[in-house]
Design a protein around this nucleic acid. Structure first.
Lengths: 108, 108
DNA sequence: CCACTGTGTATCAACACAGGTACATAGCAG
DNA sequence: CTGCTATGTACCTGTGTTGATACACAGTGG
């Protein structure tokens, strides 16, 4: 998941992933979407592959990339859990407030 | 949101955020969790601040950081939307398959 | 085999970033 | 003001990343 987060940090890669969300595409098609040269795209694709975010299938000379959402789902999970725990904490705080803060315990 | 994603790419910052999810903490407390020196932590906190992921409140000499989940929620949203569109696409594909692939249209 | 298409890799330069050390700033206590 | 605590900033350095150019490799078609 860490690799996925690092991969998501790059704008070019996000663009590529967004394109792939609408369907598989060849390296060349993805390169056409970006202002960088093909070799750069190849490297980005390698990063995405190593992060498990895409998978590749060969068809003649073409390499067709498609999305592998599992790592993204993992990130999504992590974020959700994360936000939930934050929310819960806030909730507890509200409860505390609702109780009129009668019990003043030294938390430190 | 881009800034948030970049911020999330770093392990130290994720650790700090995870700590903050359980409650506010001072810069020093956060620094104690990490293997790096205080100045480094300060810089990480700045990045998190600039990404809107944390907010700071001063209390005497201490600076108390707390989580601001909005950018994370944005990321979560983006991911959800993203995964949903991928899912939808898969769904459409399944529908196509269910139909017995009777209609063979040249999509390219 | 050859020419051609489509892609990945090697290598180098520019830039960004993380971390450390030294220092500055801000607030409390006297 | 001075001394101490807590924290941020300046500056330098080592490392990683991005992008480009040049090249190598895989597959198709003849």
């Amino acid at each position: 998941m860490e690799a996925a987060l690092r991969a998501l940090a790059d704008d070019s890669r996000r663009t590529m992933l967004e394109a792939l969300a609408e369907g598989p595409a060849t390296a060349g098609e993805l390169a056409a979407l970006l202002p960088i040269a093909r070799p750069g795209v190849s490297r980005h694709l390698r990063v995405l592959r190593e992060a498990g975010l895409v998978e590749v299938r060969q068809e003649a000379q073409r390499r067709i990339y498609s999305l592998r959402p599992e790592p993204l789902a993992e990130v999504n999970d992590w974020l959700t859990h994360y936000l939930a725990s934050w929310d819960q904490r806030l909730d507890a705080l509200h409860t505390e407030i609702a109780r009129g803060k009668r019990e003043r315990r030294s938390t430190g």
